[in-house]
Simulated scan of single mutants.
Amino acid sequence: MANPYAGEVALVIDGERQVLRLTLGALAELEAGLQSDSLVALVERFEGGGYSARDVLALIVAGLRGGGWQGRVDDLMQAEVAGGPMAAAKAAAELLARAFSLPGDAP
């Protein structure tokens, strides 16, 4: 079970339940992958509803890595996410919110 107080979010990918978490290392990798954007810009895009599929994928990959996943981005390109793109976007938004909230304030 995902622990929201630890910043964890659950997502079912290819029929397997995965626990995602944005650790400091995962956030650093995410920031490097965004190239010209900052994490603040990413948060603002999610808050304003202006995020892209690329943003969602980058967050899911970072969260998976923070949860111990050893895969590659290419492994997710054909993966089936239970609930589809909306479930993936919701999980990505929850990851961001939980990474930047105090314990007890987690959504």
Rank of each mutant, 00 (worst) to 15 (best):
M1C: 11
M1V: 12
M1T: 11
N3G: 06
N3Q: 10
P4T: 06
Y5G: 02
Y5T: 00
G7T: 05
E8T: 02
E8V: 00
V12K: 08
I13R: 11
D14T: 01
D14S: 07
E16R: 12
R17Y: 05
Q18E: 04
V19L: 08
L20F: 01
R21K: 09
R21N: 03
L22Y: 01
L24T: 15
G25R: 10
A28C: 01
L30N: 02
L30M: 04
L30V: 05
L30W: 08
E31T: 08
E31R: 09
E31W: 03
A32C: 00
G33K: 03
L34M: 08
L34N: 07
L34P: 09
Q35V: 03
Q35T: 13
S38A: 01
S38T: 15
S38R: 03
L39P: 14
L42Q: 13
L42S: 06
R45G: 13
F46A: 06
E47P: 11
G48Y: 05
G48Q: 13
G49W: 02
G49P: 04
S52G: 09
V56H: 15
L57S: 14
A58Y: 10
A58G: 12
A58P: 14
L59I: 09
L59W: 05
I60Q: 13
A62R: 06
A62E: 04
L64R: 10
R65C: 06
G66M: 00
G68D: 02
W69G: 06
W69S: 09
Q70A: 05
G71T: 13
V73I: 12
V73Q: 13
D75A: 10
D75I: 12
D75E: 09
L76N: 08
Q78T: 14
E80C: 12
E80L: 14
V81M: 11
A82W: 00
G83F: 02
G84C: 09
G84F: 01
P85N: 14
P85D: 11
P85G: 14
A89M: 09
K90Y: 10
A91H: 04
A92C: 06
A92H: 11
A92G: 15
L95V: 11
L96P: 13
L96K: 14
R98V: 14
A99P: 15
A99L: 12
A99N: 13
F100W: 12
F100D: 06
S101N: 10
L102Q: 08
L102I: 08
D105C: 00
P107Y: 02
